[in-house]
Design a binder for these strands. Sequence first.
DNA 1: TTGTAAGCGTTATCAT
DNA 2: ATGATAACGCTTACAA
Lengths: 350, 350
Amino acid sequence: MAKQQQEEGPAPKLTINDIARMAGVSKKTVSRVINRSPLLNRQTRAKVEAIIRETGYVPNPQARALALGRNFLIGLVYDNPNLQTILSMQRGVLEALHGTEFELVIRPVDRGSPMVMDDIRRFVTRQRLFGVVIVPPLSENDALARMLDEEGCRYVRIGSATWDDADHMVASNDRDAVADATRYLIAQGHRRIGLIAGPHGFRSAQERRDGFELALADAGIALPRSLVADRHYTFESGLAECESLLDLSPRPTAIFAANDEMAAGVLYAARLRGIAVPEQLSIVGFDDTPITTRVWPPLTTVRWPTVAMRRAAGLKLIGAATGEDAEVGAPSMFSSMLIRRGSVAPPAAG
Amino acid sequence: MAKQQQEEGPAPKLTINDIARMAGVSKKTVSRVINRSPLLNRQTRAKVEAIIRETGYVPNPQARALALGRNFLIGLVYDNPNLQTILSMQRGVLEALHGTEFELVIRPVDRGSPMVMDDIRRFVTRQRLFGVVIVPPLSENDALARMLDEEGCRYVRIGSATWDDADHMVASNDRDAVADATRYLIAQGHRRIGLIAGPHGFRSAQERRDGFELALADAGIALPRSLVADRHYTFESGLAECESLLDLSPRPTAIFAANDEMAAGVLYAARLRGIAVPEQLSIVGFDDTPITTRVWPPLTTVRWPTVAMRRAAGLKLIGAATGEDAEVGAPSMFSSMLIRRGSVAPPAAG
DNA sequence: TTGTAAGCGTTATCAT
DNA sequence: ATGATAACGCTTACAA
């Protein structure tokens, strides 16, 4: 039994033929073992598996990719205005892929470009990707989903609400979460609450805005148009927009920003004007990114379970491949929850 | 001339055979064109190239990978305590790869695990990676570099100083940059300056610490041992360590933190104690990550040209492949520079 | 249940 | 300078 292949050296690459010879079977039989073919004699399988284990043989992914017409790569396609969330997306998907034969290929794209669609198409077809995870705002593009279907590329979309079937979608309930957060503000006694919404055309922005308006309506609070501003999910835009909100008279006593970056901008704007937070202005953000605990005061925010969502997306994608039934049922809906920190207080009297 | 292949549809995949037939040459000749073989008749090449352009033919990467024994994938291996910098690393490498046939595969690892080395070995050999970019602190591991060499995997290391030859290394001059920053603090009048250094065993931490001590020595300022603390490059550790520095009597009038996360922790600690920044305490960080402009006051810091360094690393890696001589000479040394913002002022009188 | 032969799309060898 | 033919390592018919 040749077995110098244990644990070291430049590895004189074993092939399926070597294993077949050692096991005294045909390469096809080895192939069947690798691919978990059901029609195989128990003993034969056991014998081959033993050899594989002893030798540490690993099938060549390139050869499999060529023969199968598909690679063992998962693509992560994104064009996210909020750099902070990119990391947690990656973390989640990587967690799902950990220990499998899949690797993660990342691909930032420019959704503004007229070529996005072709870019992504080339990406998936050229690399013959096993599947892709698509995150907001790109995940809101139905044409993209259709295109991936046409190309025979599996996909899972991440979103702030559900707009595709369970096999293709992992979502959070942003609307409810924001409604809760807004009710919390109202319960603290706030009545003039400003909203710095996300970019027009973003589903997440719309969901969060809807939740906000819903809670206000429920409480019978009218929302003057001047108290709402559409921005770009960036620190700078939060800062800029907060300026105009603070110019209003009477001034809002609280501001809900549709993400933490903008909330940090609001806090900064308040500081620039010498407005004390939370005494004179309460702030609530969304995402629970690290920045919330690095600024002063730490920001009350809505925790968005990004990592868990991405992991679910990854599992959903490869679930079919691994055949592990346990993983096929990766959950499709996740709940965000309010995290109370230091940026909210009852409004100043008067 | 068949040319329905222009711009749409599920793409009935062209192969090298199709191109060969259309051009009236053998597939080997087409292959030569693809691989820029020098021994080719100008006209033959032109003819084949024309067909390729017309049809939009793209060679199948999987087949090439199998035949060549190497993939067109670049790996990014990291185990970075500072999440913030991961993004800029990725951005830089992605920029270098943009428009090429290479894709980026990311691979976080746990350098604490006894299996790291084998993990990475499996990663590069299984995927037959074209090459990998290794970032600190993993890039300081010489055994890792040796192993990659053995496996025939190209690599480029990123570091805070140069410790490998120019082909394998892209570095910054952290020591000089920190010395400059420290001199700036001294020029402002500070004499009791605390240092919150990076983790023991990190080359970047050592370089930055050396720069700090160098500047102090040059100015004839003795550095009490109590003014130096080793920490983990995290916000929490910066916060914790700052507490003990602020307990000293007399208190330091300035603190240099070896990265921005820790500097943010210092700022937070000061706020907790009601110590005004920069009036009563000056702070300087390192990296110039986004957080520096989101806290109040914005942090003076040393800009670390991460994106440019990573791009250079990527170019260096694929330079040999693209054959573009212009890119082979990607620079190997980058300078960090001081960015003055609001967290430094002369020490309070007395 | 297992094996044989023929690909998958490219590159390398060795002629010519 | 170009082409026929055999790899590359695996999978899918199709037999046996």
